[in-house]
């Protein structure tokens, strides 16, 4: 197959996504600056100030922040600054954490991948396997049960399952470390290194990975099943059978290839939004990723970090969706670059 880079499509898509990004920045500016200033009559500098910082008085701090972030400037100057800072990733310095904001965010980001990405992959495997299982048994009891469980998983609150798991297997039976800190130290209390560290990490992550996968496969399973059923009853499958193609190829080559497309597509979208949904698992198992960062920032009213983390999350979504736009045509030949 000849493959040429679809330049026009590429440029068009990128421009669209940049516009979206700018809209999001404006939206953030609206909720972080405009609403507090004009609706609540509050100086946003208040958001950035810790209760005490190096023994300075609060008003001195607020003034300093005003100067540092230009919060005493006219609003349109602030606006320009804000847009510029976001686009160039200049998030400034968090007085509350006493660290640059970008460093805080960069520390949190990779933590998510340990659990979220493997669980996404695992749930895709469940979704496709169980979806096909049901599709070829369409209408039978095993299909109904399988499908019912998949629907059930849409509605099981993840945090609920996680705390039950933690309470039974962690607290009561003591089979699993109940938080990541506990997982990464040896019984004597010394921090683990090397392979032991990795083993500890795996032992700790395996349960949340499986639980999250079991809670997330439902929608894609239903997609796989319904497209599988459609495919099983389609005229091309009848035609393939008449052509004498062995049943195994009909199911595992043709039906499967057609049925998994929507599930794979959906996995891409879920990948984009995976961090957004990570708050619960991170909070319950106590590891410090983006979700937990957002959550702690909300609990401590740290609007600065909250806004920046939210921006980074949106940016991540946009980038992933952009990448997906280019991958889809490779998965489904019917999708065109247009």
């Amino acid at each position: 197959m000849r493959f040429s880079v679809p330049w026009r499509y590429l440029v068009k898509r990128i421009i669209e996504r940049i516009i979206l990004l700018i809209v999001i920045i404006n939206f953030l500016f609206l909720i972080i600056y405009i609403i507090p200033i004009y609706v609540a009559h509050l100086n946003p500098a208040e958001f950035y100030v810790p209760l005490s910082y190096k023994g300075l008085s609060r008003s001195t701090e607020v003034e300093a922040i005003d100067r540092e972030f230009g919060l005493n400037q006219p609003i349109f100057v602030q606006y320009i600054d804000y847009v510029k800072n976001m686009l160039t990733f200049h998030f400034g310095y968090s007085l509350i954490y006493d660290e640059p904001v970008s460093k805080i965010i960069l520390q949190a980001l990779p933590v998510d991948l340990i659990i979220l990405v493997p669980s996404l992959i695992l749930s895709t495997v469940f979704a496709i396997g169980l979806g096909l299982f049901s599709a070829v048994r369409f209408g039978r009891l095993s299909d109904s049960i399988n499908t019912f469980f998949a629907i059930l998983t849409y509605f099981i609150p993840g945090f609920w399952v996680l705390i039950i798991f933690l309470q039974i297997f962690g607290f009561q039976l003591g089979l699993f470390p109940t938080n990541i800190a506990q997982a990464l130290i040896s019984p004597s209390g010394a921090p683990l290194h090397g392979w032991a560290y990795i083993a500890g990490l795996i032992k700790f992550s395996i349960a949340p990975i499986i639980i999250l996968a079991l809670l997330a496969y439902g929608v894609r399973m239903a997609l796989t099943r319904s497209y599988g059923v459609e495919s099983m009853g389609s005229s091309y499958v009848t035609y393939l059978r008449a052509k004498g193609i062995p049943e195994r190829s009909v199911v595992y080559k043709h039906v499967m290839r057609n049925a998994i497309i929507p599930a794979i597509t959906r996995t891409g979208i879920d990948f984009a939004f995976v961090i957004a949904g990570s708050v619960f698992v991170e909070d319950i198992f106590g590891f410090y990723g983006m979700g937990e960062l957002l959550y702690r920032s909300a609990l401590t009213f740290n609007v600065q970090i909250l806004g920046d983390a939210f921006y980074i999350l949106s940016l991540y979504v946009i980038v992933v969706l952009l990448v997906l736009d280019f991958i889809y045509p490779l998965i489904d030949p019917r999708v065109k670059y247009e």
């Binding site: 979206l20 999001i24 939206f27 909720i31 972080i32 609403i35 507090p36 609706v39 609540a40 509050l42 208040e46 958001f47 939004f273 961090i275 957004a276 949904g277 708050v279 957002l294 959550y295 920032s297 909300a298 009213f301 609007v303 909250l306 806004g307 983390a309 939210f310 999350l313 949106s314 979504v317 946009i318 969706l321």
Partner: peptide
Amino acid sequence: TIPGLPLLITLETIFVVS
């Protein structure tokens, strides 16, 4: 496109803080 739960959390915090 904007991630829902984070937006929910952010919005609510702004309302609380302000």
